[in-house]
Amino acid sequence: MREPTFLILTALAGGPRHGYGIIGEVNALSAGRVALLPGTLYTALDRLVAQGHVAHDRDEHVDGRLRRYYRLTPRGQQALETETARLRQLATAAETRLRALRPRTA
């Protein structure tokens, strides 16, 4: 799973969000590293909807602008959990090696 996809699913794990909300949340989650452009976001959303990981939740109109909310599906939640476990295992393995390296380099 690519990082923007992981971040979009993580953003939706906090509850349904509209496009602008997802962009803001992804930016915050990545500490400003990932700034999604709307074109990129909607290609990813199309893919995630087709894969059944994300679904339409509801529509709202705010100041004459359409806000369409998306939510994580159970399948999306499972994919996010699998990816999180994979990343955690990798991060743990890297941390273990780095911890072993530190006393020698100190």
């Binding site: 496009g19 709307p38 074109g39 359409l66």
Partner: peptide, 24 residues
Amino acid sequence: EVVAVLLDTATPGRTRPTTREAVN
């Protein structure tokens, strides 16, 4: 929906899309 998101992300006072947005 997409135009609404684009307008939300645009800095106030801007009247033209950026090149990056257009290419994207």
